[in-house]
Design a protein around this nucleic acid. Sequence first.
DNA 1: GGACTTGTGTGCCGGAGGTCATACAACGCG
DNA 2: CGCGTTGTATGACCTCCGGCACACAAGTCC
Lengths: 233, 233
Amino acid sequence: MTPGQFLNAHPFLKDLRSCEATALLRHSAIKSFPARGVVFLRDDEADGVYGILDGSVMVTIESSGGGDLILRLLGPGQLFGELAVLDGRCRTASAIARSPCSFLFIPRAVFLDVLATHPDVAAAVMSALSDYLRRSTRLILEATFLDVARRLARQLLELSGSSPAGEGLCTTLQVSHIQISQYELACMLGVSREIVNRHLTSWRRAGLVEISRGRIRVLDGQAIAALARETSH
Amino acid sequence: MTPGQFLNAHPFLKDLRSCEATALLRHSAIKSFPARGVVFLRDDEADGVYGILDGSVMVTIESSGGGDLILRLLGPGQLFGELAVLDGRCRTASAIARSPCSFLFIPRAVFLDVLATHPDVAAAVMSALSDYLRRSTRLILEATFLDVARRLARQLLELSGSSPAGEGLCTTLQVSHIQISQYELACMLGVSREIVNRHLTSWRRAGLVEISRGRIRVLDGQAIAALARETSH
DNA sequence: GGACTTGTGTGCCGGAGGTCATACAACGCG
DNA sequence: CGCGTTGTATGACCTCCGGCACACAAGTCC
């Protein structure tokens, strides 16, 4: 993905006129990281925002007790690192490259300038923040009330691209594979890898999924969706 | 608290010039609710934002399984209901009066107009949203990695007014009482009332707190802070 | 004052999930 | 090629918390 394609596609920035877009690009840079490269760490100062051109990034927090929590997985076309730039405080979480990555790096001052001069961009950013907050609230709700099996089922559906909210009918009959290790999956749910493995294994035995090293393939999306929807006990 | 005092004190709106503030007040209304009154419900349409003049409000979500989760407790001087107004979608959570309340009600269109015409107000709102998000992330982190005792200790400290982040030294030696039922406390942590009671009782026996109907008094803030800080297992 | 509601204190049991240990398969590298 | 690393699979055990049951205390409403 080229920087130009990125700007045209992104909800925050697609409304910029082309002359403004080229000006923004002149003040931006391309940054690249190898797999497992550290884009930034929690408590770092916020230097700017990152638009993903290629590769995959995970946003994580390490707990003091050693465990990792994966907050989001991001791919090409997505922007991250806005939060700390917006309020001028430190990074809340770390960003790590899951694969070789290239980013469009927009320095803090440039991004803030666009915000200040474009009320519609500011409104879009507020909408996006609201969205994060809704998602975050939903995660808290699910984590406190749903058991691991249900949350795992929802996570699989979200990762496979259908029904991010776990709502609605799962009409996709086609199988889809997810490129993720069981350990990462466990970190996304905040549970142990063993538990994830046990659920997946039982689903494999039931013919719902197929498991291979670092990859999961949902065979029966309907059944997984049913598991995700099931009311508590 | 009068509407004027509210506007002068609130971080979003205190920078408005007085002529603009009076204009805003002309388009706003005073709304009152009895104890346990429903200000709005989840999935309602967002009609406007509420500034608390008097009383106490809780923001809650009912899970499908019957349990309640209390997201925030709010008091005079605080604003709520911005989220759904900002992105034009439905309410994420319900707002219930914990005591007789009066609000300054700012209709959606009026609030959005202030945002569009005052970039500094918009920036303040973005900062506030960022703050919510940080808080939300911290809650997720604590909920996944900390046991109930630690989270309860932190909650008590936050409610008693000292060290909202659980960080820093607790230098306040003075005792403070918290007006909350053990059930509400349990709903804030997403655990059962019984567990909350058991921890509190053991702390009472150890002389750390004093318990009466609907009220908790922290006697030894230092010790509670130590419990909150303790590293995992 | 009596009946109802709301809040608190405790015992007991079962289950979900954490931890540890172990084994093994796949991949990566010198 | 052998060896270390990373990922998967599974068993045994233990702990914390949820749920139920019940008792009691303190308000509240008629």
